[in-house]
């Protein structure tokens, strides 16, 4: 353990690992770039669908089932199949990452909109709001904390899968792990793992912070920050499990 720790510190202390196209800053930027890109694609797809299904209440069963089914999809299998079919390059792996990020956002948005107090929605209608106003001004703002819980899960899922994606020739921090394994260079493997884990933890904390900030004052007391990720996980479970 101590020897490994020494080697790890040695790896991080080597200035060669901090510059150039294989340096830590470059790999970190790549990893963040993939994450942002795939998350943006997932939001564009999942937010409108989740909001619409949540608002109308139609197709909820199908959506929850789909989100659950997609969670059973092995990430490495999806990545390898997409890259074999569509070729190497940035787009195929990003598409695979997007596929994995859609279910949590979808489930979070749906659950968030459904969880809005029906009395509040009724009041909005009673005030003469049109359906789109009810959705955009009442349901979505109130659903924000749970939606953000879903976005947070999606971001973590992407960060984790982007690491695995190094196997199918993507850049990012996973390169250190995959290359290190291939070269039997354990300190490099470990350095990559530590960097990825740190990135995930920091990103999660950042999302938790944003989640707290976007919570409307009224919703804040019932759903405080940290619970978001778990509530999004729960939201994708089929219903009917009384607490």
């Amino acid at each position: 353990m101590r020897a490994v720790l020494g080697e790890l510190i040695g790896w991080f202390g080597d200035p060669a690992h901090w510059t150039g196209p294989t340096g830590v800053p470059q790999r970190l930027l790549e990893h963040l770039g993939y994450t942002a890109l795939a998350l943006a694609c997932a939001l564009v797809i999942a937010l409108p669908i989740g909001a619409l299904v949540g608002h109308t209440g139609r197709g909820g069963f199908l959506l929850v089932g789909l989100a659950n089914g997609l969670r059973a999809l092995p990430t490495l299998g999806l990545l390898t199949v997409v890259v074999l079919l569509a070729g190497v390059g940035l787009l195929p792996p990003i598409a695979a990452l997007t596929v994995l990020a859609v279910p949590p956002v979808l489930a979070g948005t749906y659950a968030g909109v459904r969880a809005v107090d029906p009395a509040v929605v009724d009041a909005a209608r009673g005030m003469g709001m049109r359906e789109h106003q009810v959705l955009l001004r009442v349901e979505l703002p109130n659903a924000l904390p749970i939606i953000f819980g879903g976005v947070r899960s999606a971001a973590l899922q992407i960060v984790a899968t982007a690491t695995v994606a190094a196997y199918v020739a993507m850049g990012g921090l996973g390169r250190y792990v995959i290359d290190g394994l291939a070269q039997l260079d354990y300190p490099q493997v470990l350095a990559g793992a530590v960097l990825v884990a740190a990135l995930a933890v920091v990103l999660d904390a950042a999302f938790a912070g944003v989640q707290r900030v976007v919570s409307p004052a009224g919703a804040r007391r019932s759903r405080r920050g940290r619970a978001g990720r778990v509530s999004a996980v729960r939201a994708t479970e089929p219903g009917g499990t009384p607490g």
Partner: peptide
């Protein structure tokens, strides 16, 4: 709950390759 929250965020590949160093197994 906070420890399990942090553990749950660690990507699987990272956890898999770190464990040999922590528990002393072969990779």
């Amino acid at each position: 709950l906070s420890v399990s929250g942090v553990l749950y965020t660690i990507p699987s590949l990272a956890l898999l390759v770190v464990l040999p160093a922590v528990i002393g197994t072969k990779i």
